[in-house]
Design a protein around this nucleic acid. Sequence first.
RNA 1: GCCGAAGUGGUGGAAUUGGCAGACGCGCCGGACUCAAAAUCCGGUGAUGGCGACAUCGUGCGGGUUCAAGUCCCGCCUUCGGCACCA
Length: 811
Amino acid sequence: MDFIEVERKWQKKWSDTRLYSFDKSKVDHKKYVLEMFSYPSGAKLHAGHWYNYGPSDSYARFLRMQGYEVFQPMGFDAFGLPAENYAVKTGVHPQDSTLKNIDTMEKQLRAMGASFDWDYEIKTCMPDYYRWTQWIFLQLYRKGLAYRKQAPVNWCTSCNTVLANEQVVDGCCERCGATVVRKNLTQWFFKITDYAEELLQGLDKLDWPEKTKAMQRHWIGKSTGGEIRFACENGESFSVFTTRADTAYGVSYVVLAPEHPLVGRLVTDDCRAAVQAYQTECAKTSEIERLSTTREKTGVFTGAYCINPVNGKRVPIWIGDYVLASYGTGAVMGVPAHDERDYDFALRYDLPITRVVRAADGSNDALPYTQYGVLVNSGACDGMTSEQAKTAIVQTLAERGDGKATTNYRLRDWLISRQRYWGCPIPIVHCDHCGEVPVPEDQLPVQLPYDVDFTPDGKSPLLKSEAFMQTTCPKCGRPARRDPDTLDTFVCSSWYYLRYPDAHNDKQAFDPQWINRMLPVDKYIGGAEHACMHLLYARFFTKALRDLGYLDFDEPFLSLVHQGTILGPDGFKMSKSRGNVISPDDYISKHGSDAFRMYLMFGFSYIEGGPWNTGALDSIVKFLERVERFVVRAVKDKDKSGSYEAAEKELDYVRHSTIKRVTEDVQAFSFNTAIARLMEYVNALYQYDRDRADAYNGKFVYECTDDLILLLAPFVPHIAEELNEIAGNPYSVFQRRYPTCDETKLVKDSYELAVQVNSRMKAKIVVPAQADQAQIAQIALAHPAIVQAIGAQTVRKTIVIPKRLVNLVVG
RNA sequence: GCCGAAGUGGUGGAAUUGGCAGACGCGCCGGACUCAAAAUCCGGUGAUGGCGACAUCGUGCGGGUUCAAGUCCCGCCUUCGGCACCA
């Protein structure tokens, strides 16, 4: 069989007969199978794309053959920084390079033979898509979930431009090497923190990898504790957040973040110079650097003092860069006796250390002692346990207005504005008279202008396009300016799964009634690197749109699978700079996409991935040819009328156990073992053929072979379609049903089990299926090898595990 | 630094969750077919010792629990991911 030719033949037929076109009338039996869409970065598909799309397409085909109406769309996440960088370097407009890349990738995806329904294709950079991205932004804006505030960005002092984290290398600009500082800009945010608790709770009921759920939980980072208010001597006050209110009597200083608004007003004249120098230094330090554990904790004294509300003690106010303005209240209380960081800080700056907790059981409680225990040196709270004191102290403070019990989340609001060109424009107009005015929905989309100078020079590229910027205020009609920023591309990818089923709707982002029937996604497949960002943002969008009345479900992706990563042959991530990138093209043009896909499924554990190894590809080609030979032979000998019941029964057993195990394995995305089972089945067919040359039952073998074709179809779609034709079946194999296991064929009247003596393997016995434990033991004891192994010793204990083994403990 | 995952023959990887370690492949060795080679088909293949039946060892290292440990517990080592002092 010419695999290449066969591919061409069936791809044409599939396309001509619209085989994979989704039938909307069967929505009640739908399965929405979604692979994370691609970023059109390079011109060609790499091994990773194949690894994502090939096996998951096999999964979709499997569901299709089980009778589900499968919805499997494809599209492109087309806005983003790489295209813009490429443009800056080469002068090719991002739109041109992106559309060209999409074109190539689309062709390749079609050539893969995946059963995507291209009628629902999405490109996020096209106005018919981003119009609705803007619409969603406006819905969130109306609900108060989009707002502006000052936030720091990475700023290159030489290029005068904002840098993404990935463009900052060792605190310097990757382009010019100049120092990067943090600078405040007014930025748009989505208030994802409003949903922190629900995002956390919702994880419990999702069929997602535990690892991913754990990562999201950690990212959301809920901690319960209290806020304690410290009054300053200048009359102002600030609060700290703590999970250890029980240690409040041990406070010997407080530390504010260097950016804390109070610092300027608190600092005394003699400390001002040192504080300002420290603040300047901090602005140069990236957040990642600041948070490095290997750095020594530093700080400076502000000269000011405040009062610890629990005991009235006067404590010094410091600033330190290990305190982050963005977490909690931007201020912490320093309890060196019971916190390691505080302990280090106190030692370094010679601050007092007061113990207020002892181990309850008198065990070693050397300082810093960070466990819970029993309070000492804590006034009225002495003798309480940490747990009791936490509540008691917060409560007492709350009654006096000096504190409250609170829950704090690590999760921060989502910064969505980018000072970039290649993104979705923000549909807001800034009017001198009316302020922020949303663009009316009937004026969407706000088109991204093509002709824009996007060389980085300190301004948002759109700011330089007067044609874009100049507009009139939708409210008062006076001249006004558009928002010059674009949206983070994660915004575009946070709702694409909602657009797919209604991809060509030009009246709405989606028809809610229809979407509520199509969603949630039944199986979502993509890389683990999106565990926290994309997957959390998409969940947030779903919940927000639900609260806006558009959706009637809470979670977008019921079940999630992460595929592993295919590494280079050297075991490292494939990268151009390392020169270990494997291009699938050569393999595919030689052996075809089916063999390549099956190799990817067989040679790796799908969820693990691993380094590329070529050898196994040839073995898959050999296997497929072996299958073909058998099918041709079985068709030819269809009418041979021999019969040998025992051999047929045995083959039937293998046949049905294969059906059962392949089905289970595919459902678990364990493709490598599924294919191993198929190989075993083929081996069994050959063995039958060999042993039964004299009594060959042509009809029976033909039926077994037909099942083989069906079983193989999801893995090698083109070849199976051809074999289906060779076997004389009507088109298409994908309109036939996947075989189901007949459990009665799996009933055996006897089975083999292992016999151990003192846990060492000594013999194998065959026992009747209905034998009880005593009978099994009896058969085991009668076996000559067992008799010999036991010898004169006494059997002290007999362990019988039906279907597994017998262990005789002797001595 | 913390969290998570992993570590199994020459090699990719299996192992129903505590029950015959190495399924299925690759590679290698041998046989059949062939004038020959390729292809194909068949058989063998963890290590050590032994002519042999067999014995001993063996899932990163060291301990432990158990009739039984790749799997569970304790302590390490290495690799890969993720997170960044979270008050």
